[in-house]
Design a protein around this nucleic acid. Structure first.
Lengths: 218, 218, 218, 218
DNA sequence: CATGAATGAGGTTTCATTCAT
DNA sequence: TATGAATGAAACCTCATTCAT
């Protein structure tokens, strides 16, 4: 998905064979399971391996160390999320602002809520990993895609500093979503989130848009 | 500040003598220092004690375990932040919506940016602590104070579900602020944040307000 | 041997491979060695591991904690002793009372004196372990076996409360043996013990037997 | 009471003043309490001091170290017991064997059962203290007193090796009593003990007595 | 390739003991 | 004399990682 920051964090071998893929997948999923069941403090490589139904040794065949395992899991998830955002943005260039916002929110929330358990579990990982680095990277991708889309909005919705506006939008959206996720991601709450998030985004953009003095008389 | 969740997390003894107070303060500060200097993975009780200029034993006289130390530090900081928010909210009941938002944002950002290093450092703690519990607690306080204030806003700014609106507002604000903090809290960025956050909040509220049919006469 | 009382005390993994068995055996023996050489206060898991020629980690692969290690060693020894007693009892049902006593004493003393060093070493363990629980369990087994045997003795050697009589017998025997062991288990003393213990036991039983009024007039 | 083995174990100062005596008494009693309430593993000097209502510092004014505290408590108790036995023996020289035994048992059981909680608590201490040393010492005093008494018994109750006989008697009695104590010292059990112990002792002595060919005319 | 026993550095925590107040 | 905060050695235990099988 997204580019790893350090080379040590890269998975040791790219699984080419079918069996390997299954194994890697199992380990990845087991990581989430353990995280959710036992918490970040109890997340040990041995436990993950056991839950995945393989031996520790096998785990270390695919990941050079624990950090890389965590990184990989986090990267995959965040990568999915931004990819969804990127796609939504790309598909709505030159669209109506409201439509843009609608698409953005839907893509983001769908991606995050597809497996809310994963999303929640990963919050606890990113800290240990100085996830900030990765988060910044991801955020940056979102920012770029968003900016690009916003630049194609109607002339009365242009911004002095699109990049910053995009960052605000993306991080505010992430913040609100996180709160709902950490509160348990109850369907009712998620529903409200889907309904309110566009209001938040749209409201902000309208307010932040450069007041082009509707001067242009001619 | 806020009430600890578990009894095991409560400080072991309340420092009554002057000497003790100093010691506890030093330990608390040292925790932040170590966190910033060495990262969460290197945050060991021994290291904290050393940095605080006391022995490990002393640390354990005041905190029953490492978790309680982290909890205490986190609790103190988050407590400060919500307290600031609460005060701002209480002081602006019945005010103009724009003023309310302005006050809210200023209080929040001021509190968070007073010691940006601390704010950043603590993000990494809360994960290890299943800080979600504490975070929810804190968020909840913010939500209550915000709701109370919003209820006193002008009639055209009333909301179908104030509580949820408050939660959205608070968590969006927190999300945006977090992004800036994790990006390094550069003064320039912080400036922009202070300027844009009100737009975000105000824009959302205006949009989320119940469309009171403008007194449909006729 | 006998059933552990608490699950925490149970060994962590049953050694299946040959290597493991050797390791576990070595740890068990090392525990005794350290106990004898350094005393109970110096009995640390690190020291035991070192003496066993393995790393601490290995020790903890087989015992979840220090207590379980001690428990296991104690259990094994006491189990051996009662087993010997049980066998002796079972083999002498319906025998002459004197023979019964002789067999009982021999079995018990043989078992205890087989490795007097171990016996002595373990006295100091049982206290730390609230060995009372285990001791009661063991004593109980002895009591049962003894009672069963005594019930098959000649009619003039029947008892009002066999169970209690058995307990007295067993614990008196244990007490006398312990005194000799703690005095150094000098061969001379042990010899005397073997000679006097039957007198103690037989004398008691004869005295405690229900005085069947030799009514049988003629 | 009895003479301490090592000089370091002696109480630091002999309490002459009333206040001190009270303090020392309180500490002594607190030791038992803590032992019973929290077990030997939780017996810390701080805890004992707190329970006694004094500060740790004060405890260390009366005992140079923890060991000496434990020693003192144990010594006092065991001293009481042997003293009772000694007195009983001294008072029954030249008496009937049955009376001797009766007196011995009564004195011993009374002393042990006066505060069964203490008796039980102390079993766990003696191990930590290499109580064997003290136990031997105490046993030895009992042995001496007992031997002396037995020598004054009727001619048909003389023994080849009184000392050993006395040791057997004393330790068997101690063993049986211990079993009852560790089983909870239920009044019913204690009653049976008082009734059966004389049978045990008397039976043994009768059996162990030198069979003086009762004729040896001329 | 897979296994899982072994490793051991290092983290957390306790507690006997001291000493300034 | 009493206090109790401070000390720090040392104990227990974990867990990422390796490597012989």
């Amino acid at each position: 998905m997204s580019t790893p920051v350090q080379s040590t964090l890269e998975p040791r071998k790219t699984p080419l064979q079918a069996r390997s893929t299954v194994t890697v997948e199992a380990i990845s999923e087991a990581t989430i399971q353990v995280l959710l069941a036992d918490g970040p403090a109890r997340l040990t490589t041995t436990r993950v391996a056991k839950r995945a139904g393989v031996s520790v040794g096998t785990l270390y065949q695919y990941y050079p160390n624990k950090e890389s395992l965590l990184f990989s899991v986090l990267d995959q998830h965040l990568g999915n999320v931004v990819s969804a955002v990127e796609q939504a943005c790309n598909e709505h260039h030159h669209d109506d602002l409201k439509t843009m916002v609608e698409a953005l929110v839907t893509a983001f929330v769908d991606a995050k809520m597809g497996r809310p358990d994963i999303s929640v579990a990963l919050y606890s990982i990113s800290a240990a990993l100085n996830g900030a680095a990765l988060a910044r990277q991801i955020t940056s991708r979102g920012q770029v895609a968003l900016s690009a889309m916003l630049k194609t909005a109607a002339p009365e919705f242009q911004f002095e500093q699109v990049e910053f506006t995009a960052l605000m939008l993306f991080s505010a959206m992430a913040g609100a979503t996180r709160a709902i996720l950490e509160a348990g991601a109850l369907p009712e709450m998620v529903g409200k989130l889907r309904q309110q998030l566009p209001l938040l985004c749209y409201g902000y953009l309208v307010n932040a848009a450069v007041r082009t003095p509707p001067n242009s008389k001619s």
